[in-house]
Amino acid sequence: MKALTFAAGFLTATAAVAQQETLTVYAPDYFVSEWGPGPRIEELFEARCDCDLQFLPGDVLPRILLEGDRTEADVVIGLNTDVTQQARESGLFAPHRVDLAPLTLPIDWTDDVFLPFNYSHTAFVYATTRLNDAPDSFDALLNAPDDLRIVIQDPRSSISGLAMALWVHAIYGDEAQAAWEQLAPKIVTVTRGWSESYGLFTDGEADMVLSYTTSPAYHIIAEDDTTKKAAIFPEGHYFMVELAAKLAGTDQPELAQDFMDFILSEDFQSMIATGNWSFPAALPRDQWPEGFQQLDMPETVLFYSEEEAAALRDEAIEAWRQGLSR
């Protein structure tokens, strides 16, 4: 009898807990630290949904592909177009059903599965205190004296490194390998990820670091430091957009849809600039935080669709590998 009562109590208790539904969102690691956008997204969304939003950080795409249709994720956030083809082909994702009219991206976006939430462009960031005459074009960078020290990321292990390989390919095409050969003597080293490169740059080990056009905004807003600049090149900058998507097999279809709708809402969009240090995907420029409005913007935006990126990836990486192996 006692056991039964206990069981009944236990069941009621779990039911009470279960009343608050849980939305599980897979996100990259940098998202969930106390300094990333995760905690603010969670706070804002939970205020709207009366639910429990749980971020599970890690390697989003490999994990989803590994789990297949048994994944617990309802939504994933933090994918990038250069790797979405495999994600799309897995058939794990459902259309986002969000009106794309509010988007303010510099390119047209019509994808019905992957929804952009912020963007930036690849760029070389430097400190005006350490580098007086930064190269003002990609050509100038290639022809810069060899004592210019730059640090980049490996396209085989880093999404920004891959974007750079595609960037060089977009500008130099068949001459990409030659461009890499010209760049080679200036490259101090190639790191696994963005963090290591940026650490080397802030430590003064390199004059320029492969980063984003939005990186200076962090220094302006968080550190009140206006000496960090992104060098803007007339040849154009490679567009990098971060995406969210809804799982087809989600057991919380309504909450997942609410979350997708929330992504382009003003609440989310006005927070994401300083949350993730990127341009909001659906917010007019005059509503960006002050520090972002000050940023130098590229006039030409280079971009490969996911099919193009997937088709060119091996070639672009090989040009990088051959060019730097000489």
Binding site: Y30, S33, W35, S195, Y198
Partner: peptide
């Protein structure tokens, strides 16, 4: 998950958010 990070992982997370 965020509640179960270890210290080395936290170092990477901090670096990934500009917190050098």
């Amino acid at each position: 998950d965020p509640q179960r990070a270890t210290l080395p992982l936290q170092v990477y997370r901090l670096m990934g958010s500009y917190q050098m």
